[in-house]
């Protein structure tokens, strides 16, 4: 109710009805989203295979031989597995690097693409869009990586991911929303294109940077396939890869006698969601504040 551009008239009855409806709608929607995930959360604690919907985070602890609430045996197993510590760091490193490179390439590319008068800009944008539709396929891409010596290097994972046409074009559509008058004013003040980019474009695009950065981060965090194809040394696998490997291994060999497979898998799923819970609040700030783009009236 303290919002800057709050247009509500408290006496305006339809608005109140709307708020009520909206609240109920989101409560329902959140329930629909959360119940299945809560189910996984509960499964990560029951330590037995259940058929149907058991929604109580309570389970059998083989060490004490009792049913306990919030049975974390599967989580302990994941955290203490020596093979998971380094992959977690690799994941953080590749996620940060990919996000940084990705934002760099998308903003630079998008900034160039909004220069309508620049000779060749149309060709650039066709060349970019063309790659969304045509690609060389798995084997030729693999052979290129081999030829430039990137096999078994994390760059083979990070570089291709940092160039995402979808994100670049989205970025461009944000940049197009920046009033031309701002650029003109800066140019008259003697700003170089780089100066305009750093001083005007980037600060005005915080929401876009946050959302597209989030896209890059999440894609990099959950990446798995590139590691399968390009990485050989097991010291360079990321967390997602190890989690999947852990699943496979638990199914194929050395199946734990004390921890149910399904329980371990559920716990791993929960663990893989957690980092996002930390990243998200930092980004959300930028969606909430809004951007004061109306600073210069057109």
């Amino acid at each position: 109710m303290k919002k800057k551009f709050n247009l509500i008239n408290p006496q305006y009855a339809p608005r109140s009805w709307f708020v009520l409806f909206n609240t109920l709608f989101f409560v329902f929607l959140m329930a629909a989203m959360i119940i299945p995930i809560f189910k996984i959360f509960c499964d990560s604690m029951v330590n037995e295979t259940v058929y149907g919907l058991k929604l109580i985070p309570k389970g059998f602890d083989p060490n004490t031989g009792k049913e306990v609430w919030f049975n974390t045996i599967a989580y302990k197993r994941i955290v203490t597995d020596p093979g998971l510590y380094k992959p977690f760091l690799i994941s953080i490193y590749t996620t940060l690097m990919t996000t940084f490179l990705g934002l760099l390439i998308s903003t630079l590319g998008a900034y160039v693409l909004i220069q309508k008068d620049m000779p060749g800009v149309k060709i650039f944008s066709y060349m970019l869009l063309f790659t969304m539709i045509f690609n060389g396929g798995l084997i030729p891409t693999f052979l290129v990586m081999k030829n430039i010596g990137l096999l078994d290097s994390l760059w083979a994972v990070m570089l291709p991911m940092s160039m995402n046409v979808y994100n670049l074009v989205l970025m461009r559509s944000f940049f197009e929303g920046i009033p031309v008058s701002l650029f003109e004013a800066a140019e008259i003040d003697g700003c170089t294109p780089m100066g305009i980019f750093v001083k005007i474009v980037l600060p005005l695009s915080k929401a876009a940077l946050a959302s597209i950065g989030l896209f890059f981060a999440v894609a990099a965090w959950s990446e798995y396939f590139h590691y399968v194809i390009y990485i050989k040394s097991s010291s360079k696998y990321n967390f997602q890869y190890k989690l999947r490997d852990l699943f496979q291994d638990k199914q194929e060999a050395s199946e734990g006698t004390k921890i149910n497979v399904n329980t371990l898998k559920s716990a791993a799923v929960i663990v893989s969601i957690v980092p996002f819970m930390f990243i998200y609040p930092f980004c959300q700030k930028y969606f909430m504040t809004g951007v004061t783009m109306g600073a210069v009236k057109e």
Partner: peptide, 26 residues
């Protein structure tokens, strides 16, 4: 627009090496 071409170089390199080169495989 000379500076803009400069700015496009990193984009172009990634584009050509990782996207256009493999396209020979078509």
């Amino acid at each position: 627009y000379r500076y803009f071409y400069l700015m496009f170089i990193p984009v172009a390199i990634v584009l050509l090496v990782f996207y256009y080169w493999p396209m020979l495989g078509i």
